[in-house]
Simulated assay, not measured.
Amino acid sequence: MNMLVIFTHPNHQSLSYAFLQQVLQGCRENEAIQEVKVLDLYEEAFNPVLVFNEKKRRRDMHTAPDLAVYREQLLWADKIVMIYPIWWGRPPAMLLGYIDQMFASGFAYRDGRGLLPEGLLKGKSAVCISTMKGPALYPLFWLNNAHKVLLRRALFSFVGIKRVKFFEFGRMEQTDGKQTRKLEKVYRYFKSLTA
């Protein structure tokens, strides 16, 4: 299994970065995982801003030369892992900008004759690991699970990725031992992952 880990947090002293380290440790101890590549969007200085004009048209985004390396990463990966904080009820703008550009028509999906397009990333799976300051049930009861709906239905399902697992960890700024238990949970998951 080839795994692409997309890490989105500007601080390498953050809890999100600690989750990244646990993912990588679990992967190193798992024989089912052949190779892992990490894309750190902030360290990479990925430009999340969409630009369309007379020279750069939206319909050509799937062939943009400056995004070729990122398209190759997504095609290479069997599993896509996203690690990010929840800010204002959604992933950071940096990650959303990556999604806007990378999951483009002609690359991630193709318009068809039916109601929904044809997903071109079929056969892949995804894992989303997010942390938030508020309680874990806040997104469910206050935001109608907008974050999960955004990623599961509006993104992954749209491009053909049906198997999506979420780890949403709330109250992560409290130092009552829960951080350690959550980090261990993620480590164990990736250590024992088979597909």
Rank of each mutant, 00 (worst) to 15 (best):
K178Q: 10
D60P: 11
R110V: 10
D78P: 06
K122G: 11
A77L: 12
V23I: 06
R152T: 05
K182P: 01
H147P: 01
S130E: 03
R71Q: 14
L41S: 11
V159K: 00
E173G: 04
E44Y: 14
F158M: 03
Q101C: 11
G89A: 09
M172L: 02
T63V: 15
K55F: 15
A104L: 04
V5E: 03
H62W: 13
V51S: 14
K56F: 09
A154Q: 09
W88D: 06
R58F: 15
P135L: 14
R113C: 08
A136H: 09
N53A: 11
A18F: 10
H147E: 08
G119S: 10
D60N: 13
G114A: 10
E72R: 15
E173W: 08
L143D: 12
A77T: 08
E72W: 15
Y70I: 13
I83E: 13
Y138N: 08
S157R: 07
S105Q: 12
G112T: 12
R153N: 13
F166P: 01
H9T: 04
K79F: 11
L120K: 13
Q101V: 05
G112C: 06
V36M: 05
K124G: 06
E54P: 07
D66E: 15
E31G: 07
E43G: 14
M172R: 01
Q101G: 10
A45E: 10
G106N: 05
P139V: 07
E173R: 05
L155Y: 00
V5C: 04
K37G: 01
V127W: 06
L143P: 03
E31L: 07
K185H: 03
Y138Q: 09
A93D: 05
N11W: 00
N2Y: 01
R90M: 15
R71N: 11
P65E: 13
K191P: 01
L155T: 00
P48M: 10
G26P: 02
Y17C: 01
K178N: 10
N30E: 06
L15G: 00
V186P: 02
N145F: 06
Q25H: 06
G170S: 01
F190N: 05
E118Y: 10
R153I: 09
A195Y: 04
A108N: 02
D100E: 15
L115A: 13
F190D: 08
Q25F: 03
K133G: 15
D100K: 10
Q13W: 08
N47S: 11
N53T: 04
G97A: 12
A32R: 15
A104N: 08
L24G: 07
G123E: 10
L151G: 00
A77W: 13
K182G: 02
I161G: 00
E29P: 02
L24H: 06
Y42P: 04
L143R: 12
R181S: 04
G119I: 10
S157F: 08
G26R: 03
E168Y: 04
L193A: 06
A136P: 05
F169N: 03
D66I: 14
V159N: 00
M61A: 14
C128Q: 06
V186T: 03
L193Q: 01
N145H: 05
V23Q: 03
A195K: 06
A93S: 13
Y138L: 12
L15F: 10
V49S: 11
I6C: 03
F190G: 03
S125I: 09
W88R: 00
Q13L: 08
Y98M: 05
Q174I: 08
Y187M: 01
P139T: 09
P91F: 12
L67R: 13
G119Q: 07
R188N: 09
L67Q: 13
P135I: 14
